[in-house]
Design a protein around this nucleic acid. Structure first.
Lengths: 141, 141
DNA sequence: TATGATAATAGTAATGATTACTGATAATGA
DNA sequence: TCATTATCAGTAATCATTACTATTATCATA
């Protein structure tokens, strides 16, 4: 139900996400979309990000800190969250075969359809800048 | 700095979390605390949950859907999130040795200090109730 | 056991992220 | 071209959480 109609705003968002690798928040995407559509609404950006995620064109990543992030790359990979600068980095899959899911499923009477693996710490840039020892801005609640 | 003083409200919250296994939200804890302290403030509950988590007495789990959950059990284990009823269940550790962390660290110049593994799907109860096929209430944004 | 320093509280306002609502506009199929 | 309906911009509302403030509770020490 509910046929999806073309919209230039949505196409712009789709392409924008496909081209960047910084896992932006809805607001970061919004700031970009405004360059092409000066009076686009933030709600439009949210609605389309959700729709694109549902359609499987992009991926929503909720690191548990602040706003959700969005990822235009659909090949399977994990994510690393830097507690110092808040940035999100792609990491090669640590569990390519989804072994954990199978292992967890064994002792569980429910049905597991998805496993999420996330890593937290200090990114290379912040490590160099001396951010390793408790200077965290994020993750302290 | 900032010595921690005893508070009856905080003790109640600590015990409440130690006794239950349903990974409640702040609001769920709040409703319980009000039984003993009828005019406790929701802010007090939030503040103490955050403090207890910082002290290492409880654990905050942010499944990426809705409000944060809190867990009084400090032994290492994973969590399962039911997309149908929204419940959170404990699962035995799928990666006891933190192998993934080590594997991910190999190709990464930053410092990984924490790995989070979460599972999503349909819990045993909702499976029986026929909730397996797209009846999800949660996880559809 | 009184006192003084300060942490914690209740109550409430404010914030930030996200969703919902509405009348106007744009896309699509007949 | 027309009718249908998804999408839009603009804005209000919601939800989870934090911040602020005047008052109260804790606790080490006099």
């Amino acid at each position: 139900m509910a046929a999806v109609k073309f919209s230039r705003q949505r196409e712009y968002i789709r392409r924008n996400l496909a081209e960047r690798r910084d896992h932006p928040t809805a607001d970061m995407v919004y700031r970009d979309v405004r360059k092409a559509f000066p009076n686009v609404s933030l709600g439009t950006v949210y609605r389309n990000l959700s729709l694109l995620a549902k359609l499987g064109d992009i991926r929503r990543i909720s690191g548990g800190e602040g706003a959700d992030r969005f990822d235009g790359r659909m090949d399977p990979h994990d994510h690393f969250f830097c507690r110092v600068c808040g940035g999100v980095t792609d990491l090669p899959l640590a569990d390519g075969g989804q072994i954990l899911k199978k292992r967890a499923q064994k002792d569980f009477a429910g049905h597991i359809d998805r496993q999420v693996v996330e890593f937290f710490g200090t990114c290379p840039k912040c490590l160099k800048a001396g951010g390793a020892k408790g200077l965290s801005v994020i993750g302290n609640k």
